[in-house]
Structure formats: C-alpha cells, structure tokens
Amino acid sequence: MADLTILVESDPLAVRHALVCLQEAALMQGFAPDQRGRIEIVLAEALNNIVEHAYAGTTGQIRLELSLRPEGLLCQLRDSGCPLPDLQLPPGQLAAFDDCDLPEGGFGWFLIRTLTADLCYRRDEGQNELCFLVPGNPPD
C-alpha cells in the first residue's frame, strides 16, 4: 500500500501540475529541501520519458505510487504505453562532449540513474513498471 498515489495524464502540462502538487503534499514536507529537489528532478525525468516515448503523443494515464521507506522514497510508475526498446533500461551515460559539439538531450536517464538506487523495469500484462528508490532519510 503506497503512502501517496497520483494519477497523471500523459501530457507535459499534466506532469508539471503533478510535480507542483507533489511538492505541496504532506508526504514531502519532512524531507530536506535538497532531497525534495532530487525527488522532483527524478520524477520529472521518469514522467516525461513516459509521455514522450511510451505514449508518444497518444493519450494515456500514468500511475505514480510513492512510499516512505527507512532508506528513502520508493517510487513506482506504471503506464500502458509502448515498452522500452528491447525491454531494457537505457544505459543513460553522459555523452562525451566538447565546446563545439554540445549535446541538447540524453540527460534524462543519466539523471535518473545518478539520483536513484535499485532501479528496475519490467513489462507486465501490457504495462510498463518502473521502480526506484530516491535515497535519503525520510521524516520520522
């Protein structure tokens, strides 16, 4: 049983609204500002990936479940969009760059991988399930 469940329509403005509401939620208030920031970054990347790639312009819903754990905030996202390519999590490495050839994308999975632990993905009965922990001490 999650501590907080949020249903988000597959739309960038709906994602923005959900993230703004989450920052106001009682669940978040005991976290330090730094951890609230990390949670917001990771959830923004995970939700926007689903909007842009899994649903890719089609309508759909994302179910976001958040649970407080002694070691951090456990996040679980489910959607009914397209599976990840090869049913694999992208490597999410930061591309090598120089000042003449700067990347404008490819930061999303890097940020998710950098800021989370226990990242896992599975495809189950036509749904994507992404699960990870944002480490850090939750409120008592």
Binding site: E40, E45, N48, L102, P103, E104, G105, L111
Partner: peptide, 16 residues
C-alpha cells in the same frame, strides 16, 4: 525554481 533535462537542452540550444 525548477529545470528538467528538456529545459537544460533548451538552454544549451539557445547558447548554440
């Protein structure tokens, strides 16, 4: 107060 990877990409694109 908040910028995600799409926002970061846009700032880089503006720089270019």
């Amino acid at each position: 107060g908040f910028l995600d990877s799409s926002g970061l990409g846009a700032v880089v694109a503006v720089m270019k």
